[in-house]
Write a protein that binds this DNA or RNA. Structure first.
Lengths: 144, 144
DNA sequence: TTATAATAGTTAAACCTTTAACTATTATAA
DNA sequence: TTATAATAGTTAAAGGTTTAACTATTATAA
């Protein structure tokens, strides 16, 4: 029923906002000079660097033009650098600097703690149902 | 468990992105010159105008500074106007213009159709569980 | 092989968000 | 009553997003 979907989206945007604020608040509290968006990029690079901008864009649901901007900003801060892929010269592979890796050792535990604290207030038995709900919505919107 | 929450947030951001794109796509298809953000404001005004900027900000999970910007933009397009509240002169009450109301008669059915189409692909029996999941997450992040 | 299409990235312009400092107004407590 | 706090809104600066047009490179099909 349409009104349920409307309500769900409303609440989804609410969570997106409170999540964002929680992240920003904790970055600040820990004196970490990163924006929410930069962090989104870095999280993926801490898992695996040397991936190109388009891959990062896809993983973070961002536009490739946003990636140009964000990678510029992260480069300026000395956290990452671009390296042209010798096999396919259209690609810029993005690598962490030593400083970029170091940030990870500080920030990843902070993130883990945030997720852990949130998890303790959630009834995890509903996880699968809720993830499916999100997937169904995502597929629906992609076709509309 | 923390990894579930991490996954949920990831998927939530995915849905937020596909929802946004669906809205933008359909606005464009129907030649409606509104951004996603302007639409968020207008949706609330079509329900009830004469509310102040802070109320709109709260309802849309936006900052009051964003509202100043967005109301300026909507005013420029001739869709709304500000009116100082005579009872509490700190407030700007926002009213629809005739053009703003007219937009609603075109855009509201489009939105309703989007929600309706999405709803048809969702198992609505899980709605309550999923809304509660969102509320729990929201409360958790507000405390972190 | 060569023309064409697809892909990765950049740029510029317009738009939106966030933060902090600021003004104006109203509420509250000593 | 008056000083103080709280609330609504604005502003400026820095940052992020979106779109379309663009370049460079690689893949594909005639």
């Amino acid at each position: 029923m349409a009104e349920q979907t409307r309500t769900f989206i409303q609440n989804l945007l609410m969570v997106q906002s409170s999540f964002r604020q929680a992240i920003q608040r904790n970055l600040k509290k820990n004196n970490i000079d990163l924006t929410f968006e930069m962090l989104q990029i870095m999280v993926h690079l801490w898992k695996k660097d040397g991936i190109n901008q388009q891959e990062i864009a896809t993983k973070t649901f961002k536009d490739k033009a946003s990636l140009t901007y964000l990678i510029n900003n992260l480069t300026t801060r000395g956290l990452v650098f671009r390296q042209e892929d010798p096999i396919d010269r259209r690609n810029n592979n993005i690598y962490l600097t030593e400083l970029g890796s170091e940030y990870g050792r500080k920030v990843k535990p902070m993130l883990q703690e945030i997720y852990k604290m949130a998890s303790e207030k959630i009834d995890s038995s509903n996880f699968d149902v809720c993830i499916n709900y999100l997937h169904d919505l995502d597929n629906a919107f992609k076709d509309i």
